[in-house]
Write a protein that binds this DNA or RNA. Structure first.
Lengths: 346, 346
DNA sequence: TTGTAAGCGTTATCAC
DNA sequence: GTGATAACGCTTACAA
């Protein structure tokens, strides 16, 4: 195979004994507009194909001031929740001719700030970010710099940054209400990072559902400080030791739920015989756990789709950037991890 | 905040009343080499910071003929196996100053070919690819085009393409031998895509382990045609219906294992009481399944690390590209899904 | 110690 | 219908 490393449009034009302009026009589908002869078109296309010409997007982007590239910053691509969102985003973006520069902030706020700069230096046409914490200054700055940006998953209350997230409040309310309808009254909640907005909304949903059914809130039943399985494990062990223990646990993330499963195993407790469990985040394995888990499903696919759509819209009306505030509906997937212990139980 | 969209090095230099070369030198850490005065350095750095100057990597890359960018093509970023590998690659690459352009081939060979071209047009400095199928022409072509490329996960037998993968043969041998040591003789194997090299190697390991213990191979116990959970479910149902059924199943992927769990639930079979299970691929949830699953762990992190290291080495010695052939050791993680049914059982 | 200018590969403007 | 050429923002010889 020929070494095509140095074949640029100039070389290609020389080979064809044509000017670069003509070649460029044919290759960019502007042959008609410039009334380039059919014969020339064929010659150009044939040569480009045979010589394996690959256009240099760097040069193209530099000239056109658009890179056909979108930056994606997420806290942990290894987490299947974010991996699925990323898949959706990549798929949607590429369908529209954009490539994704993937950045993993590793839950580190200063890394996140640097990544924002990095993506700007890469001249991405837009940024989709699932922010790490509650600090939003760097993101607001980017927002004001006329570079399209949209936040997913996490939101910043009180700012007008565009976001696409789940309706965490309603999802949590539904989850707890589902437990109540199944006769549960002592319902524990293991939460994640306390000051993150999804957590705040989910806890509010938990409390409001209890209130709505006139169940008194027991502060000892609400605990935890991280979305990790470690936290789930520790808090579950603590809850199991209470007298009486809760009859149901609401896990605010699927990793927390995994930790609870581990704790149950270690304590020889069965689900749903010994306690019921419902978790935020549906995962591919949720239904394959030996006790299939009742979960609150989030529209990860749709989240990715709408995020890309918004960025595309921004790129469309250059300059005036509209904002967007979407809370996607969640849905409860009932499975065997919740047991009816009420009077009406079968 | 000031609109910094148009601030380039020229503007910055004008602001400072300096030439672009001086500014460029300071910003690229070449101040010492050019004996630029301490005062000028400080002025430049301060101004760049205050005016929020972000260098344009497109221009830089075009000039330097290197983009500090690596292309990553994987069949499915939503699959946690690949998501974890991607995390490792992103982390290693960025640590070395490279960004990742992420492409999901969606298990589509023609998409894969296009993505290879796309990445070349993006002028990536190297490509890491987990190929979809057994067709390798487009990859060989890329290999010969002097653009560093390395294959992960899948390999092409008989070619000299550089690869980093798991020792699938040994992993499968260990898995089956573990079952044999636990007294199992009727051991089924649910496989994935028949003509993919990992599958071929794993099946060979399965057969050789049986042979080594003088257990006759029953062809009816080896079935399946895809790495999906659907396949795992269907094949498991079929195996459960045999008389006698196998006492153990070896699943060649974790998704297959999930399908088996679903089938077991539906048939009211318990693990490991009714049958033992061992699966290729350790996943974060493996130990949290209500019957913790015995798995063959793969070094995903190391796979990513070595892939990046190889690409870096190639970029280092420009021109002469060495090759690499690595089969990473796997390790068996014993858990409760395998029961000792032999004479020596406790 | 700093400045000038060519050139990286494109596309677009103008000319013929 | 086609061709020359400037310009995108940067780095780096070569000058001074």
């Amino acid at each position: 195979m020929r070494d095509t490393a140095k074949l640029n449009i100039k070389e290609l034009a020389r080979n064809l004994d044509l000017s670069v302009s003509t070649v460029s026009r044919v290759l960019n589908g502007k042959a008609r507009a410039y009334r380039i002869s059919e014969e020339t078109q064929q010659r150009v296309k044939k040569a480009a194909d045979e010589l394996n010409y690959v256009p240099n997007r760097l040069a193209r982007s530099l000239k056109l001031d658009k890179s056909d590239t979108i930056g994606l910053i997420i806290p942990d691509i290894g987490n299947p929740y974010f991996a699925e969102i990323a898949k959706s985003i990549e798929s949607q973006a590429r369908q529209k001719g954009y490539s994704i520069i993937l950045c993993d902030s590793g839950d580190d706020i200063s890394a996140e700030e640097e990544l924002l700069m990095l993506l700007m230096s890469h001249k991405v046409d837009g940024i989709i970010i699932a922010p790490v914490g509650t600090e939003q200054k760097h993101i607001v700055n980017t927002f004001h710099s006329a570079l399209p940006i949209v936040i997913i998953d996490r939101i910043f209350p009180g700012s007008n940054l565009p976001f696409i997230t789940s309706d965490n409040y309603q999802g949590a309310f539904d989850a707890v209400n589902h437990l109540i309808l199944n006769g549960h009254k002592r319902i524990a909640c293991i939460q994640g990072i306390g000051n993150s907005q999804p957590n705040i909304d989910r806890v509010k949903g938990y409390k409001d559902a209890l209130k709505a059914s006139n169940i008194k809130i027991d502060k000892k039943l609400l605990a935890g400080d991280s979305f990790t399985k470690d936290n789930g494990y520790k808090q579950a062990i603590r809850l199991f030791a209470m007298t009486p223990p809760p009859t149901a646990i609401f896990a605010l993330s699927n990793l927390i739920a995994l930790g609870i499963l581990g704790a149950a195993n270690d304590c020889n407790l069965n689900i749903p015989e010994d306690f019921s469990l419902i978790a935020f985040d549906e995962q591919p394995y949720s239904e394959y756990l030996s006790t299939p888990m009742t979960t609150i499903n989030q529209q990860k696919d749709e989240m990715g789709r709408q995020a890309v759509d918004y960025i595309m819209a921004c790129i469309g009306n250059k300059g005036k950037i509209a904002t967007v505030s979407v809370k996607l509906k969640t849905n409860l997937i009932p499975r065997r991890s919740v047991k009816n212990i009420g009077l009406n139980a079968l």
